[in-house]
Design a protein around this nucleic acid. Structure first.
Lengths: 225, 225
DNA sequence: CGGCTGATTGAATCAGATCAACTGCTGTGG
DNA sequence: CCACAGCAGTTGATCTGATTCAATCAGCCG
């Protein structure tokens, strides 16, 4: 089994794909190693490939000329991203950068569409993936325009809690990156954490956060005021 | 030709679909009349159908308990929406309401997936549609978190200008709705319009806006500060 | 032991939301 | 036909959450 094949087999999107199809994907696949901080592509560049993470972590973001950045997604092992230009043949709508040393596969737009035509189940998987991402964006848009920072933070912590299935959370990103994801800056995030701590909803130390009052957090996260 | 078939034939997504498939869609299609202000579905409800606009106009939005609303999309004749739950079998991520008296078709989730399995080209069309919507959301998220209201407004006006292909724009929505789309409130939109007017970039009267300095508008819209 | 990066804290400023009053338009009913 | 209710939009005054700027601190690596 080639390294490429093994890498493709680990991608969630390709679960259950017949081996023959996986092998035809190998032909249009490239393994790629990147170091922390390395940029994969930038918003506006023509999008010829999409990517999947074999190991490591990648963030997808948009930046303003001022330097401020808004994180749209963070992808870890098994997840794919930058599918959008595959179906439109246009540019990447956002930029991508490695948050850790990572191994990625890049898959060429053109060949992938052919596989999709032959594999309706894969196509349905792609549609489900895109739909899930739309759902997440809807939530993110609503949070950005309807809620204040402590409320967004509460929502984020609850998400983490669900993912890690414990009240003793480990922040999966540096705080500056979490701030960028929440649409704010590190100073404001710091103050929001303090505020939640003062209210007795959480306790923090370093990149550890303990959820004390999940009930109240949920109430905050729901509240539009 | 039944009324349903005629309605389906007018939907962009179904362009080029073989007549046989269109007819199989008719079986799972319902024509629906709604009046201004009528709600089609609300965020959180189980999503069993998706919709397309035959005539009229529909807005998709999220609301905060405070009453403030963020518009995500406005759909007109030929456009379909609420596809997300089709592929996830979950709830609607947002609410939908008629902005005008409208005629819609609703198509059942289940049967539609079967047609997708048989029609790879339709499936590719759906993927392209979802991708386009993701791209738009990425832009919207970036605007909300990275730009101030006059900058977002400039971007919106340029979009209108491109769509209407003239400098003498007609606002397609009441100003209050435009405010909700831009993630703000009518008072702030009013002041933003005044600001652009004072700077000599536009002239306004009622729901008419004349673009005076498109160059400067574009520069503003790009600027993150 | 420096020196860097990430994080925190404080003070000043600002954009936008809120609250309230007012205008103008439209459509309805006396 | 006019009066008035009602809604959309505007304008002004105030308030507040967030950003900005600046200084300090903690941890980590060389």
């Amino acid at each position: 089994m080639t390294r490429e094949l093994k890498a493709l087999a680990g991608i969630k999107l390709f679960e259950g794909l017949p081996k023959a199809q996986l092998e035809s994907l190998v032909e249009i696949t490239l393994l790629k190693q990147v170091k922390v901080g390395e940029t994969l592509f930038e918003a506006g560049q023509p999008g010829t490939h999409f990517y999947a993470v074999v190991s490591g972590k990648v963030r997808v973001y948009r930046s303003a000329p001022s330097g401020k950045e808004q994180i749209l997604n963070v992808f870890g092992a098994g997840e794919s991203f930058a599918e959008v230009p595959v179906f439109e043949g246009k540019t990447y709508p956002a930029s991508a950068q490695a948050l850790e040393d990572s191994v990625l596969v890049s898959i060429a737009r053109k060949g992938f569409v052919d596989v999709l035509r032959r594999e309706p189940e894969l196509a349905l998987g792609v549609m489900a993936l895109l739909s899930g991402r739309l759902r997440a964006f809807v939530t993110q848009i609503a949070q950005l325009s309807l809620k204040e920072v402590p409320e967004r933070l509460a929502g984020y912590l609850l998400l983490l809690r669900a993912a890690q299935n414990t009240d003793a959370l480990t922040l999966d990103l540096p705080k500056g990156q979490i701030a960028a994801y929440l649409g704010t800056i590190p100073e404001t995030l710091s103050r929001a954490l303090k505020k939640l701590t003062d209210q007795g909803l959480i306790e923090t130390s370093g990149n550890r956060v303990r959820v004390i009052d999940a009930e109240a957090l949920a109430h905050l996260a729901e509240a539009g005021r």
